[in-house]
Amino acid sequence: MLELTGVSHRYGAAMVLKEISFGVEAGEKVVLLGANGTGKSTLLKIANGLIAPSAGQVRYRGEAISPGALRNAARNRRFRGRAALLFQNPDAMLFNPTVLDEIAFGPRQLGLADAEERARHWAAALGVGRHLDRPPFGLSGGEKQKVCLAALLVLEPELLLLDEPAAALDPRSTGWLVDFLAGLRCTVITTTHNLSLAPELGRRALVLGEDHGLLHDGGVEAFLGDRERLLAANLMHIHRHRHGLVEHRHFHVHDWD
């Protein structure tokens, strides 16, 4: 479904992604892991055709995807209706006067006659139905995240790219999100640096290393059990611990959020 081949990217002199290649099949749930600054967000933006990679190619269902390729109106309409990206900062996605307008934005753009009905359905599914007449800007971080998700799911995409979706959520909402995503039938790629959440978000892990290359492409559990790779990815560290009166040092991981 989605195929990245030799994707590299630079911001000026800084290397952000180095020769990333992988494919994702329809229906897969993939977790994209990596320490801060390893290029996870950039990779999702490239996969969503928002940024042209410095080198390499992205293909979605066989069609080349890049800002240039998506200048073709028909291809853009086709791709944007099928692949959706949830930004790490939900505020960046909200600009309509009410939650209803926000969620109905995509369907209205496509000229769907039942845009409002769809928006109400997804608002209810995401638990933000009571906010439909409110401006989205005044909602809490978790509610904004849900409105953004509803605004993407309303188009019933085949591919959902989620950039740190749990970052703005409290523990209860995070639990809700995990359950909600598990129930979705579409293909999902989720970035996180919260290792405890990773096995809940997918069976397959793509891990970006500090050299911005792909360090691991395989099972989540296999990666989490591999101390050498966790250290190489800067997702595990060592420091002093106290267990009652005993103090010692050992390697371990933290939940970051």
Binding site: I51, A73, R80, A92, F95, G106, Q109
Partner: peptide, 17 residues
Amino acid sequence: RAHEDFRLALVSRSPRR
């Protein structure tokens, strides 16, 4: 960075111009 995200989010959410 935020300005770029606002711009890209609109592009990403827009099947039409």
